[in-house]
Design a protein around this nucleic acid. Structure first.
Lengths: 250, 250
DNA sequence: CGCGAAATTGACTCGCCTCAAGGTGAGTGG
DNA sequence: CCACTCACCTTGAGGCGAGTCAATTTCGCG
């Protein structure tokens, strides 16, 4: 956790970066990487190349063949699908340690691009597929990761299908406020959002105007504060959880 | 395909049914089952029990531990999540040959229930997990199936996030009209919908009234006809595809 | 035929989108 | 250090699509 701190906003020293191996990688114990044993890890190290993406830069385009798979070292990557009218819907978000891309198949049915600066470990798909076939552990671990991702995507369906704009935005902020840790009644915690308003709109299936209005609405009700464009100070966590339409069993 | 016909609306002769093995199963070459070799198939046969569900009957409840996994032999099964207000959102649909339930983990985070009468091959989860761990092929095949399911769920996200009621209902009908086959310009094909209006609403994130209005709207525009409650006759496929907001590359 | 569940229809409301101006703030060059 | 600028965000007015509430109607089935 704290090990990732010193890498924030890196990307200024590419040469130094590519010298790293898994052993000192900040995500070696997170998500996908955490499930690999030493032998598997070194197999991955052998085939991977490091790559950096600038904010907004794409790793793969929708419906095009992409020869790459990747693991996120640092930063956030999103998967998006284009609507017929040019609208964009975000269908997946990958953070540090998460796996990105689609093994065993042709064209990626969604675009993959960086949210802010990103560092990746990139694998040629052929090599990865072979490894997943040969090494029992890799395929099995991959399965677990995919099942988890499917689960998250299904929750997301509930949000898009049944929640109001207020509930969507509240749930979104809550997600980042909690971000792993428990966060009992820590009032006044400040969250740095990695997304701009338009990106939030694309995630929640709303327009940018509605997102903005919901933010200011929550501020007016004293639930949050907005010290800067991309940061949110949660002032009343209980109220936020309530507004998100969460069921509280008390 | 045609082999499934003689099993429709079965469920009247449980004893006869449970005598079946994989070798004469209608779904042995579909979806999950299709990816297994003979040896794996017999391993599954050894551990499975057959089970029938009445329309609406549940196999697992949301957030409760379920000791079962299953493959659908006949009928349709849905995964649903309850909203805070008692609203229901369908987050997954499984058809003949599809895998149902969540391996390798605790409580199922969604409810599983039958749409119409259903026949299943049920496996104790422990046994299944062990098999998936021991036999390379099973885990690997399971991964492919899960990746496909994730993909379908992501498309669904786009629908819920960005499409209008008309587009949703049109796309829904289209899905069943095509159902695998290509269906070039076969006008006047009749589709039997396995879902009632409320169930369609729960899938599309709409209300039952809106779904109903969209159906009659499409009928008034001569796009479809509604010979009975659960059947739709597609009269103008091109218009339907157009109404669904599909991109046509012509 | 008659009952009950499911579907349809109508009137009305409200939430979110659309379109159109302003603000705001970080980065740039004078 | 300040004006400039451009991207991003906010705010407002207005319209429309989908939800809500409330009857009916229709269909499937005993």
């Amino acid at each position: 956790m704290t090990a990732t701190m010193n890498l924030e906003r890196a990307g200024t020293s590419p040469a130094a970066r590519s010298a790293h191996s898994c052993s000192d990688c900040p995500v070696r114990d997170v998500s996908f990487c955490a499930g690999l044993d030493e032998e598997e890890r070194s197999a991955f190290t052998a085939m991977r190349r490091q790559k950096q993406l600038l904010p907004g830069e794409a790793l793969a385009w929708q419906d095009e063949e992409s020869p790459f798979l990747a693991v996120v070292r640092e930063g956030i990557v999103k998967n998006t699908v284009m609507d017929a009218n040019g609208g964009e819907q975000t269908v997946g978000i990958s953070r540090s340690g998460d796996f990105v891309g689609r093994p065993f198949s042709g064209p990626t049915p969604y675009g993959i691009s960086a949210v802010g600066p990103v560092e990746l470990c990139v694998f040629p798909r052929n090599d990865f597929d072979r490894l997943a076939n040969e090494r029992q552990g890799v395929g099995h671990h991959m399965l677990k990761v995919t099942l988890d991702e499917l689960q998250r995507t299904r929750r997301w369906l509930l949000m898009l299908g049944k929640k109001s704009a207020t509930q969507k935005v509240s749930a979104f902020i809550l997600e980042f406020a909690r971000n792993g840790r428990d966060l009992a009644d820590d009032e006044a915690c400040v969250v740095e959002l990695p997304f701009g308003r338009q990106e939030i709109a694309d995630i929640l299936g709303l327009t940018i105007e509605t997102v903005s209005r919901e933010f200011t609405g929550l501020r007016r009700h004293g639930v949050i504060d907005l010290p800067s464009r991309r940061s949110v100070a949660v002032k009343d966590l209980a109220a936020l959880a309530d507004a998100s339409g969460e069921v509280t069993y008390n």
